[in-house]
């Protein structure tokens, strides 16, 4: 148990001890002729037992109670914190879910509105096209009719004009059949009528 540096001192003490022991007549610890040497043991045993009873019945349970109470409290606090964390996690998840749901709904509404608008626009365009087509057709038909009537008028005008011209030049009414044939041929060569 003694470190090396103290060894010489210990040796010195052992050298001195016997001299001292001789002077005093031995170690008091080994003087069993002295009734006090053993009586301290009996008293000591009594004191030790009393101390044991006091500590084991009163003092140590007091410490144990406080330590147990603290451990219980810490465990309970940890449990509460755990539960609170669970609740907050659930709430956060709920919020995230609600946000996602709202976003999906909004997207769906936007898509639906967009589709409806597109459909309506397409319908209007189709109706407009139809109307324009009809107007175009009507216009074409009118042009055609006008053209046909104009062509008919042209033949009459040409025949009359030619008849008049021939009558003035020759003084005799033209041969109506020949005139018609010549006019028809002339119109045919010009691709009119």
């Amino acid at each position: 148990m003694l470190p090396r540096t103290l060894l010489p001192l210990a040796l010195l003490a052992t050298v001195l001890l016997p001299a001292a022991a001789r002077a005093e007549g031995g170690m008091p610890q080994l003087d069993f002729a002295n009734p006090l040497t053993l009586s301290q043991v009996w008293w000591g045993a009594l004191i030790f037992i009393v101390l044991y009873v006091l500590l084991s019945r009163l003092a140590l349970p007091r410490v144990g109670e406080v330590l147990e109470e603290r451990a219980r409290r810490i465990a309970a606090d940890l449990e509460t914190a755990q539960a609170a964390k669970g609740r907050s996690d659930a709430a956060a998840k709920e919020v995230a879910d609600a946000t996602a749901r709202a976003r999906a709904e909004a997207q769906a509404a936007i898509n639906a509105a967009l589709d409806a608008a597109k459909q309506e626009a397409a319908g209007r365009i189709a109706a407009l096209n139809q109307r324009l087509e009809k107007q175009l057709q009507d216009a074409e038909a009118q042009i055609e009719a006008a053209r046909a009537s104009a062509m008919r008028a042209l033949r009459e005008v040409a025949t009359e004009t030619a008849g008049t011209v021939i009558a003035r030049l020759t003084g005799a009414p033209p041969d109506q059949a020949r005139l018609d044939g010549a006019i028809g041929a002339a119109l045919a060569t010009r691709r009119i009528g």
């Binding site: 001292a20 002295n34 006090l36």
Partner: peptide
Amino acid sequence: SIDALSQFKLEPVLGLD
């Protein structure tokens, strides 16, 4: 002489053992 051992000597207290 050095008396290193008398410190271990038991003395009665209160006149008893």
